[in-house]
Write a protein that binds this DNA or RNA. Sequence first.
DNA 1: CTATCCTTACCTGTCGTTAAGTAAGTATAT
DNA 2: ATATACTTACTTAACGACAGGTAAGGATAG
Lengths: 205, 205
Amino acid sequence: MIKGLSKKEKLLQIAARHFSKHGYEGVSLDAIAKEVGITKAAIYYHFKDKEALYEAVLLFRLENLIVHIKASITAEEPEEKLRQYIESFGAFLEEYPCFAAILAHEFADDGKHMSEKAVQTLAQPLGTLTAILNEGIDQGVFTIQNPFAVQLMIVSSFVLHQTTAGLRKRVAHYVQEFAVTPEPDIKDLAKTLATKIIKAIRKEQ
Amino acid sequence: MIKGLSKKEKLLQIAARHFSKHGYEGVSLDAIAKEVGITKAAIYYHFKDKEALYEAVLLFRLENLIVHIKASITAEEPEEKLRQYIESFGAFLEEYPCFAAILAHEFADDGKHMSEKAVQTLAQPLGTLTAILNEGIDQGVFTIQNPFAVQLMIVSSFVLHQTTAGLRKRVAHYVQEFAVTPEPDIKDLAKTLATKIIKAIRKEQ
DNA sequence: CTATCCTTACCTGTCGTTAAGTAAGTATAT
DNA sequence: ATATACTTACTTAACGACAGGTAAGGATAG
């Protein structure tokens, strides 16, 4: 406890990085243990099995996310709420890039490794977004045929932006037009996304 | 050759499904071979190794995609071109849902398993989209600070829509508002996406 | 006879998981 | 104060299952 982190906290942190880089199935407990500086069996002292370790990593960040988003939404009008939601979501993923990659892997295989509790926890921030969109529709400031498509645009853009930096760089090498445009950081992206999405769904009087 | 598919074609098709469900690392050649009805060693007769099999699967669909998109874009004006691009991209992913999932996995781990040639091939349809956006900007019909964000919205929304059907259903169980809205199929999504994105980037006179 | 297309049998390495053991620390009883 | 009992936080060593990969040989068709 004199050091900043206990072994268990260090384990969780390093595990998060491994899961983010290789996905659930691609991660080896040997590799994690080696980096933490313990043996693989020691992981089984702290967690029941690989699944339990993974769930701890996932739930930890998901719960952080809920708190972070709730604290960021202070406005009254749906339009401003939506802007705050988008920007706080972006800021969170910037702070924890590992979490974005874990979500990306989870989305890619349809939540295969998510426990029911993890799904339930993920549902909370998504529910908040849905509520904002519905509120806007009810108040007549948004027109959305399909709130779900709007959600997908927001969440998927952020998550994949955070994970595909290297790939985009490789692709850019073969696309002349790409090279001209500078890569936006996630805060620029959040601003652009918020502006574009609000413009797209705003009901004109 | 009397049957519709040669063993090699069947192998490619089943491999595609396996890679789409489990990602590169999660796939076992034994499992693929078993389903094809051959032994694992037979795979090594057709392909040098696991990587080569994977690349064949990926390149095959990527080349399909290029042809499909090129054939779909017939309009002259950037706005209509963009609509055609979005809708043909959506239609292609609907026809080959495995491909969407493979892309999703590849995006999640930053193209780790993509060869240089695969990256180059992926660059083509993305280049087409970039060109459409740039053309619109040049002609003064689009205002986009950041074409890249628009690309990300289109591609990521489609890909993750195709892969996360099961997860969305599970999440919906915990979000009351979700249940009300019916799930759009990908063609609805493509239409919504095209309309919203064009509205978002259209320059008003 | 020969090339194509496969099978059998096997190797090596790594995976998640477990059993068993241990050094160090804490709590309690005397 | 000290012996005893128990917990915490690991290690060592091994398990069976399965991974990707290969060498050698057999079947089949032209």
